[in-house]
Structures are given as structure tokens and as C-alpha cells.
Simulated assay, not measured.
Amino acid sequence: MKISSETEVCEAIAGAKAPLSVCGGGTRGLAGAGKVLSVAGLTGITLYEPGALTMVAQGGTPVAAIEQALARENQRLAFEPMDHRGLLATKGEPTIGGIFAANVGGPRRLAVGAARDFLLGVRFVDGQGAVIKNGGRVMKNVTGYDLVKLMAGSFGTLGVLTEVSLKVLPRPETEATLVLSGLDDMRAVAALCRAMGSPFEVTGAAHDPAAGESYLRLEGFEASVSYRMGRLKDLLGGTDVHVLQSDASARKWVALRDAEAFHGVSGDVWRVSCKPSAGPELAARSGAEAHYFDWSGGLIWLRVPPGHDLRGRLGVFGGHATLVRADEATKARLGRFQPELPGVARLSAGLRARFDPKGIFNPGVMEAV
């Protein structure tokens, strides 16, 4: 069922007697049970004020169209959302509504925040077919439920996003990446954390054991980047280093953002969020065939044998493990998301009952059917 207007969304939901699989571009492999309700036809940027750093777009607007409009004004989506198509071998176009529904970000999250931190307002249709609007084009315009934050990361289980208002940021003049060579996981994460704790405004911190390299990104005016790069080298003195300049730096971070090392390679893929200091030890006991670190060690991407129970292997730790790529049987057996604690699960169930009383939105996406 492809929708081309918000009115059609309302009618489809109000008349639904069975589950609906809400989707945008369908690029993240998160289809729920039920008839497909695609909002990819809800496209268009309805308002863009470059001077105010704000934009309003319909939920099905392709991310590529958003980025093209921003590029003309030398602006960008600072949270650099991941493109899952190469990793999951999916087609279609990522949509801005899907990005916020899944709270999709990238390596710059540790410096600027998550996708939800750039979401100013939402307009969505709830499980009874009613239109709800919350937030606005300024951060403080929120009353009652903070639905802006609630909808980000709800994966279409609370409502169908038809319009989003977002904050954008200027594109920096240049970027460069300091590459450290020859560090093991423990020493690499220590170096990344030391750099992140410095005053040199690092916007990316990753380590790839397979390449034997660690990466620290700096962005801004060329003179500032050059100065801070020199100071960062001094801070990490004694380490074998070289620098990736603008274009090479940008390509490296796209590869890290999109987990390109795991494209076209067999095996399940997980992402583990944890304390940076715990990252090396978790990776060591994971049983992974390959891994790398982002977010200064606080995010681990792992490729494991098919059917591998990573959560069982890691045990209890201060974080969560998300199954990103696997066959349907493994997803059904292990679940995509870390099981919620009982109190959190009760809150989640209460919210779903409030916003989706018929229980029709994306069953099986965030919990077992």
C-alpha cells in the first residue's frame, strides 16, 4: 500500500483490521509483520530556512534530496546517518522519516549527538488514524509528552511519521584525519579516549584492527585544523602517524560509517554499545571473526559466524547488543534488539497501548510477535 498524502495515511490506519508493516525506503531490513504501508510517496521539502538552520520535510523525502538541498547552501546533516544498503544488500532510497524513526547516526555522534538531537518537531498519525503534531522549529517548543524524542528510535511502532522539522549545521571548510598505526585494541582505545578528552575538538575516533590503524578526525577552518592536528600529534607523541587530507579523510569516514568492511562478506553483523574502556575486553571474548571500534571504543561493529549468540557470549555488561544482519531464523531466535528490563518493558508496552491501541504498527520489529 503506497501512500501519497497524509489523509491517505489516516484513512489506511483508521480502516486497518490487521497489522501494518510501516516503512519508508525499506533499506534497513526492519519490515514488520502485516500489510506494507509505505510512506515513500510522501515527499518534498516544505520549508527550508538556511539562515535559521532549519528545514521541514515530509517523511518519505529521500535523504539524498535533503543532502542535495543542504549542499547548495553549504550545510549538512551533522549526525551523518549511516546508509545500510551495502551492508544489508537492500534496494530503495533511505528516507528522512526512516532516519529519525530508527534514530540512525554515524561516527560524529560522539561529538554532536544523535539524530534525535537534531529533530525539532514531528507530525505523525497514531494507531487510531488521528494526526498529532508536537514540537516546532525551535528546540524549546515542546508541551506534554516529548513526542519529538519519543518518536525518534521508535521504529514505527508508535505512529507513522508524515513530517519532520530538523536542525541542520554549516559544512566545515575542510577536514583531515590523523592515522595512528600499530596499536592493539587496548592501546588504540586509550589513545582515542585521550584525544577525545583533549581541547582539540575531535569529531571522529575509530580503530580498525584489520588495517592496524586508528583514526582521529578534525574539522573546521583550514588554519584551525592544521594547528589542532599539530597539537594532537604532540599529545600522542611516540606513535607512528600520518594524515589523510580532505577527500581521502571523507572517504575513510564513509567507509567506517557504512561498515564497508562487512559488505559482501558472509556472517552475521552486530553492533555493541558499551563504555569505551570495556570495548577491547568485550571484543576479545565475542568470538567475532572481525571487528572494529567507533565512538572512541564505545561502539563495536562485529562480524560473527551465522547463528552466533553474541549476547550469550558477552553475558551481562553495561550496554546493549543489536543484531543488524542475519537470516530470519536467527532474528526470530535471538531478537534484533537487546531485551528490555522488566520496568522498561512495562513502560514501552504502556506507550504502545496509548499510541497504538489496536496493536497494528510493526509487530515483531522491537519485540516478538
Rank of each mutant, 00 (worst) to 15 (best):
D327S: 12
L42A: 00
H84P: 15
G312V: 11
R352Q: 02
G197Y: 13
N74L: 14
T90I: 03
L161G: 00
I300R: 06
A57I: 04
Q68T: 08
G364T: 01
V365A: 05
R108N: 01
M82N: 10
Q75C: 14
L282H: 01
M186V: 15
A211H: 09
V112M: 11
R171L: 07
A283D: 07
A57F: 07
R251I: 07
C23V: 15
T54C: 00
I300P: 00
A71K: 09
G129F: 04
G238Q: 05
E260Q: 13
A191K: 03
R325A: 09
P276Q: 06
E289N: 12
R354T: 10
Y292D: 12
R194A: 14
G34S: 13
V112P: 11
A195E: 05
G237S: 15
R137T: 00
F355N: 02
E175P: 09
D258C: 04
V39M: 07
V243E: 12
E175S: 11
E11D: 13
N141Q: 08
L119M: 12
T203I: 14
G212R: 04
I99L: 11
V142L: 08
L282W: 00
T162K: 10
R171G: 02
T27W: 05
L256M: 12
G105K: 08
L302Q: 00
A288E: 13
T143Y: 08
L30Y: 01
L256E: 03
R311E: 00
K17V: 08
G287F: 01
K275Q: 15
G359Q: 01
S246Y: 14
P50R: 02
V63M: 13
D146G: 05
S277Q: 14
H320F: 14
L169E: 10
R171D: 06
R325K: 08
W295M: 14
G264I: 07
E80W: 11
A278E: 13
V160I: 01
F337S: 11
A210S: 15
C274N: 07
H242S: 13
R257W: 03
E281G: 08
G297S: 04
E328A: 14
R257E: 04
L299N: 03
G287I: 01
D208Q: 14
E73I: 03
Y227T: 12
V179G: 08
D117V: 12
D185N: 11
R137N: 05
G127C: 13
D185A: 15
L20P: 05
P107N: 01
P357W: 06
E8D: 11
K140M: 09
T143R: 06
K149C: 02
C10D: 03
L314E: 06
D184T: 01
P339T: 05
G237F: 15
G129T: 11
S348W: 02
A261M: 14
A255V: 00
G59R: 08
A12K: 09
V365D: 01
N141I: 01
E73D: 09
E201S: 15
Y145F: 12
P50M: 10
F262E: 04
W270R: 05
G135P: 03
P339N: 10
G86Y: 05
A195F: 06
E281S: 14
T95S: 10
P62Y: 03
R194Y: 03
P50W: 11
